[in-house]
Design a protein around this nucleic acid. Structure first.
Length: 711
DNA sequence: ATTTCCCGCCAAAGG
DNA sequence: CCTTTGGCGGGAAAT
């Protein structure tokens, strides 16, 4: 990134000689260059790519061709040519138009910079000046260019919950330029956002930003659709099959039952606004639809975990494509793209499912779940929740303060450890987020919240009342100092541990969190945001708690609660409801709605999958229906007390078994992370998988952070 | 070796 | 024709 930034700057300010060159080249070059390039280079990559990049580079170029359009630079290959790096330039080069515009306007500024990159960049920059030419400097590393990161930047530009009145339009060109990526990438992001109705296409290069207000509604619809189709069953079948052998075949169940066509249509425009218009023209091909289907899978899944291969198979199946293997591969690729975006939205997170056969990549839904009730009910619920939250907050205000304090004092902790993942912490985090969110929504600004409260935001915020952010513990937005944030979290976690995690704790956390948020100025667009991967935090937590565990391995523990998983509940009720949206100016949102992400576990968990869950309802149903509002509350509470949860579980229970046999999977797993809890769902079915949070995830971003890392 | 997934060619959809 | 959208898959970075 840094690099990019630089580049941008350069572009912006035409002043520098070098830059100039570059620019010119780019312009001239446009497409043609390629040819030229090719002749010379051709190193490893396919011919096509390189050309552009190089030319742009600020640093080296100078020498090479001066004027003429020459286009590319040669150098590239000279050595390790940079892998990439210069995106920006590329971009600009690629689309002349854009470039021009920029120049004219000079509009964009360098925004970005994100955290990580810094380190590298610093060095680079320095070097660069000197003209080091050579090694390009850093490595932009593939991660820095990832779609997830990009999406994150994209999201940072707009408020999650924009005022109802304001309408934000998004210019693709502008965004592409400012983020320094090619247009193509923006489409990837926008398409999935569109599938969730966070944005909608307004005109040619324009998209309108809606934010998350309608997300609950959208998810609800998707859930219904998913239920209608039988995704759940399909998933079960597939999984089951896998167990058996590799056998692959699809078709077994039905799937087709409902016509696809219906589904798709429904999917498309569930809610929106402009009603009539569009007859749906778009040919929506895959990405949008695929994204929605993917989400549906999560929503109907009891475990809330979906493995990529299962998803790919289901998706593939419906489109009666050829059963090709290649097709499958492509599908998976797309799925990764979608998953990255969803991850940025904090709706899912990556985990690994360990099955007998081995580990498989999978994603777990975090994010709202339960909305199933009707609006009114939701409202009520939310209210109740709110109340609860407040109380708790009140109670624990002190605690929270304490926590904060702590934060200041202590830097961080060792984060990352291998082992233990602390499921609890995660949960807490999420709860906190939830509470926070709720509170904000309802009370909104009111300060009641914790102590400090937020006065702050003030005008700016107003635009975005709370910055919202993403919420998930995993990603936090933190304008300005990310360090702060991270620290805070860490502490919180630690704190929670001490307490033993209770709901209370959660609350406190929440409050703390909110406080943190409030601190941040809300910026508007471009703010840098940082996200801290939760993993590290968790780990921390885990380690503390289990401390010793490290080596040990065995773990068991597990159990956990389970959770009322239920939440999802049966479908029926919801189904009938439907109603899309009535018109209503939305305003605020509905209150709440949903939330509760429950993820208690994050660690390994066992998935479940009964082959035929026939009755699953058991748990769920009772609760859901019966008590309406109250129920939710209850759930929440439950969550809060994770530990305690068991009791509840008695009934609900899902049986988490975890260890069970398979011989101890634990043994296997433990290597990775022992566990913590697993959730299973009901039915002690046979097949279960263990999930582990992937270590990898963490790594990605913040390597630098943690001051101390002890390893 | 496997998993993740960036990059960008190139073909449809507009216009 | 040109531009905007976006499917698609090679193949390289990350693990």
């Amino acid at each position: 990134m840094e690099v990019n930034c630089l580049t941008l700057k350069d572009l912006i300010s035409p002043r520098q000689p070098r830059l100039d060159f570059a620019v010119e080249d780019g312009e001239n070059a446009q497409k043609e260059n390629i040819f030229v390039d090719r002749s010379r280079m051709a190193p490893k990559t396919p011919i096509k790519n390189e050309p552009i990049d190089l030319s742009k580079q600020k640093k080296f170029t100078p020498e090479r061709n001066p004027i003429t359009p020459v286009k590319l630079v040669d150098r590239q290959q000279a050595e390790p040519w940079t892998p990439t790096a210069n995106l920006k330039m590329l971009i600009s080069a690629a689309s002349p138009d854009i470039r021009d515009r920029e120049k004219k306007k000079g509009l964009f500024r360098p925004i970005e910079n994100k955290d990580d990159a810094f380190t590298d960049s610093l060095q680079l920059d320095v070097v660069g000046d000197s003209a080091v030419d050579e090694f390009e400097k850093q490595r932009p590393s593939r991660k820095q260019k990832s779609l997830g990161l990009l999406c994150q930047k994209f999201l940072a530009r707009y408020p999650s919950y924009p005022l109802s009145t304001e309408k934000t339009t998004i210019s693709l060109d502008e965004v592409a330029v400012s983020l320094g990526v090619e247009r193509r990438r923006i489409y990837d992001i926008v398409n999935v956002l569109e599938s969730l109705h966070l944005v909608s296409r307004v005109a040619k290069n324009q998209y309108g930003w809606h934010g998350r207000h309608s997300l609950p509604k959208t998810l609800k619809n998707l859930q219904r659709l998913g239920e209608e189709q039988k995704y759940e069953e399909q998933m079960a079948c597939l999984q089951q099959k896998e167990l058996d052998l590799i056998d692959y075949k699809f078709g077994e169940r039905k799937k087709d039952g409902d016509p696809d066509s219906q589904e798709q249509q429904l999917l498309d425009f569930p809610e929106p606004d402009c009603p009539s218009s569009s007859a749906n023209s778009r040919k929506d091909k895959s990405l949008r639809i695929m994204s929605q289907k993917f989400v549906m899978l999560f929503l109907v899944s009891k475990t809330k975990i979906v493995t990529l291969d299962v998803a790919a198979k289901i998706l593939i199946e419906e489109s009666q494509d050829a059963p090709d293997h290649s097709k499958f591969k492509t599908k998976v690729r797309r799925l990764y793209d979608i998953a990255n975006v969803l991850t940025s939205l904090a709706l899912i997170k990556k985990v690994h499912v360990t099955e007998e056969r081995g580990r498989k990549p999978a994603f777990k839904w975090i994010g709202p779940v339960d909305f199933s009730s009707s609006d009114e009910e939701l409202v009520d619920v939310s209210a109740s929740i709110q109340v609860c939250a407040k109380q708790k907050l009140a109670r624990h205000v002190q605690a929270s303060e304490r926590i904060q304090r702590k934060v200041n004092s202590e830097p961080s902790s060792p984060y990352r450890e291998e082992q233990g993942s602390g499921g609890y912490s995660l949960e807490i985090g999420s709860l906190a987020a939830v509470y926070r969110q709720k509170i904000e929504d309802n009370s909104q600004g009111k300060a009641f919240a914790s102590k400090r409260v937020v006065p702050p935001s003030s005008s700016l915020d107003s635009v975005a009342p709370f910055p919202v952010l993403s919420v998930d513990p995993e990603y936090c937005v933190n304008p300005l100092a990310h360090p702060v944030f991270s620290v805070a979290q860490t502490d919180l976690q630690a704190f929670s541990m001490q307490n033993g995690l209770n709901g209370q704790v959660d609350v406190s956390l929440a409050s703390a969190a909110s406080a943190v948020e409030s601190l941040k100025p809300a910026l508007l667009a471009g703010q840098p945001l940082v996200y801290v991967p939760s993993a590290s935090l968790f780990m921390l937590y885990g380690s503390l708690q289990e401390g010793p565990a490290s080596g040990s391995g065995s773990e068991r523990d597990d159990r956990s609660s389970e959770a009322p998983a239920t939440v999802e509940l049966s479908s029926a009720p919801s189904a009938q409801k439907r109603l899309c949206e009535e018109r209503k100016p939305q305003e605020e949102d509905e209150p709440a709605t949903k939330r509760q992400s429950r993820e208690y576990e994050d660690g390994p968990l066992s998935l479940v999958m009964p082959k035929k869950p026939s009755d699953s309802t058991d748990l769920a149903s009772p609760k859901t229906m019966g008590n309406r509002a109250s129920i939710p509350l209850k759930d929440i509470h439950v969550n809060g007390q994770l530990p305690a949860a068991e009791e509840i579980s008695g009934k609900a229970t899902a049986n988490c078994f975890v260890s069970s046999e398979w011989g101890n999977p634990s043994r296997n797993t433990n290597v990775e992370k022992p566990s913590k809890e697993n959730e299973s769902t009901k039915e002690p079915s046979l097949l279960q998988y263990l999930c582990v949070q992937s270590p990898a995830v963490t790594s990605s971003s913040d390597p630098q952070e943690h001051p101390t890392h002890t390893s």
